Amino acid sequence: MSIHQSSNIKRITTHTLHEMKGRGEKISMLTAYDYSMAGIVDAGGVDIILVGDSASNVMAGHETTLPITLDQMIYHATSVVRAVSRAFVVVDIPFGSYQGNSSEALRSAIRIMKESGAHAVKVEGGAEISESVMRILSAGVPVMGHLGLTPQSIYKFGTYTVRAKEDEEAEKLLEDAKILQECGCFALVLEKIPAKLAKMVAETVSIPVIGIGAGPDVDGQVLVVHDMLGITQEFKPRFLRQYADLRSQMLKAVEEYIDDVKSRDFPNEKESY
């Protein structure tokens, strides 16, 4: 049987993802924020599309993920869902829309699901947001957790360096992973933590664990699509493998178009009515 068994599935669900972990099939996950890109990523056969709050960085040019609003996330998610026929679509609940208030967390999650048609939401944090996670789950909304480097907490950390290198933080992360599983999360993202710790988490919990900068021994991997395709080139962390250099190709195409317009080569007779 092909290692790409999931490529034959018409629609990925939380059940599909659990089955993939069970049989040792790695889960592929990429971000998308608009209709055109989501259509390409879905057609390529990715298992999960994350409508990430990283849209704040790559789509809007903000320094952090903090400024993006719930309305903006719903706009991006709606655009993505329209393009997708197979992948499981997860949407980040943005900063300030779930922390510290489980009622607001539930309202935010319900708005995302009702208005965008997405399949699940993602939240950052462990024990401190467990009440919000359980409140969202009580409404039947699937929740993906996110531990390790949590970009919404960047001002608390003060740096984007690797998390959980010290024993105390590593123990808390492992405990948080167990708590999120007990709350009912269907999967976890681990960002920028030591590979050994990520392996331990993946072996300890029964839910799928998706890594970004968390080594090879987790259940799947996620990258920001603009980074992976080389559209954004100023961000080159150690964990990023760049699969294309689209920025250079796009730049070349734009320059050729400008040259053809200036030299009156475009449009030619065949391109005119």
Score class of each variant (00 low, 15 high):
S6Q: 02
K10G: 01
T13N: 08
T13K: 10
T16F: 10
H18P: 01
K21S: 03
K26V: 07
K26A: 09
Y35D: 05
A38P: 02
D42H: 12
G44K: 04
V46E: 03
I48H: 00
I48N: 01
L50V: 09
G52D: 14
D53E: 10
L70D: 07
D71R: 15
Q72M: 13
H76N: 14
A77S: 14
R86I: 05
A87F: 06
V89H: 01
V89L: 09
G96F: 06
S102N: 09
E104Q: 15
A105H: 06
S108G: 09
I112D: 00
G117T: 13
G117R: 07
H119C: 11
V121H: 01
G126P: 08
A127W: 13
E128R: 15
R135F: 01
L137F: 12
P142K: 02
G148T: 06
Q152P: 03
S153M: 05
I154M: 10
I154G: 01
T161F: 09
R163P: 02
E168Y: 05
E171Y: 05
Q181W: 12
E182W: 02
G184A: 06
K192T: 08
I193D: 02
K196N: 06
L197D: 01
I207F: 09
P208L: 05
G213E: 03
A214V: 04
A214P: 01
T232F: 04
F235P: 02
F239W: 15
L240E: 03
Q242Y: 03
Y243K: 11
A253F: 11
V254M: 14
E256W: 02
E256T: 12
V261T: 03
R264S: 13
D265G: 11
F266C: 09
E269D: 12
E269I: 12
K270Y: 08
E271Y: 01
